[in-house]
């Protein structure tokens, strides 16, 4: 096994042993139970009412769209907790030095830690979203139009948060980094609210700020894009300014590359 693969395996094992992973799994199980009960009640009511296909799609979209925010939130929580202490946190606890003095190099070490965190949090999002889609389909006989697009948007959003947390870990202590990344996550949500406010007040200045936030924190745009993939009649483009469509896809790639380059440079220059 190569040193890179060794670090990935070690990081994945470490993730599985963290208490946060168990907490997220328990919360996921509780949410799935509640979601199933809710879906049964709502779709049951729709059957009694004699709702048609369009109403079924509207209910399914609403339910799944709401649940996707929970997927995003729990996926983000997992991603943050898996990466908050990758560099400075582990260095201060004495865990990093024995690994860094091995010949695999800091770039590979950081890349392997990112790959492991991305695999864990991305895998969690894929599995959680797939279960929700299957549950919704089984209970309500409704499936979203573009399952892959919706899932990819969610995974992309979580990867962006994961990379932000990894970059933050090269500068901040684990606690400070966790707080900072959750604040950025909140700022992404606030940007969407700000955009709605800007539209209501017809304020160019507020619109400009919310669009800038949409570009700087693209996980929100990715989440909204994945919501937009649920059906043909769902328009999420006006919820938040900033990138959308192909521009969003390309910007996400560039954004991730910039974060990775920033984290690498900071880690290479950092005294341990």
């Amino acid at each position: 096994m190569s040193p890179w693969a060794t670090v990935v395996r070690y990081a994945v094992q470490e993730s599985l042993r963290r208490r946060v992973f168990l907490v997220v799994l328990v919360l996921t199980g509780l949410f799935l139970a509640a979601y199933t009960a809710g879906a049964l009640a709502i779709f049951g009511g729709l059957d009694d009412f004699g709702g048609d296909g369009d109403e079924r799609a509207a209910v399914g979209t609403g339910l799944l769209g709401f649940a996707m925010f929970v997927v995003l939130f729990l996926g983000t929580t997992l991603a943050i907790f898996l990466t908050i202490g990758t560099v400075r946190g582990d260095a201060e606890r004495g865990l990093l030095a024995p690994l860094v003095v091995r010949p695999l190099g800091r770039t590979q070490l950081l890349g392997a830690r990112m790959a492991a965190a991305a695999a864990m949090s991305g895998g969690y999002v894929v599995a959680f979203f797939a279960v929700l889609v299957l549950l919704t389909g089984a209970v309500g006989q409704w499936f979203p139009d573009a399952v892959l697009g919706a899932g990819a948007g969610l995974v992309g959003a979580v990867l962006v948060v994961c990379a932000l947390s990894l970059l933050g870990s090269t500068f901040l202590t684990a606690t400070a980094n966790g707080i900072a990344v959750f604040m950025l996550f909140g700022a992404g949500l606030a940007a969407a609210l700000l955009h709605q406010l800007a539209l209501g007040l017809d304020s160019g200045a507020l619109k400009g700020i919310s669009e800038l936030a949409g570009w700087l924190l693209p996980f929100m745009a990715l989440y909204l894009a994945s919501l937009g993939s649920l059906g043909p009649d769902i328009n999420t483009a006006d919820i938040l300014g900033g990138p959308s469509g192909v521009a969003l896809f390309l910007w996400t790639l560039v954004y991730l590359a910039l974060l990775a380059a920033g984290a690498r440079t900071a880690f290479l220059r950092r005294d341990l």
Binding site: P3, T6, L104
Partner: peptide
């Protein structure tokens, strides 16, 4: 074993 893997 971990350090064997890291140091090849």
């Amino acid at each position: 074993e971990l350090h064997q893997g890291l140091s090849r």
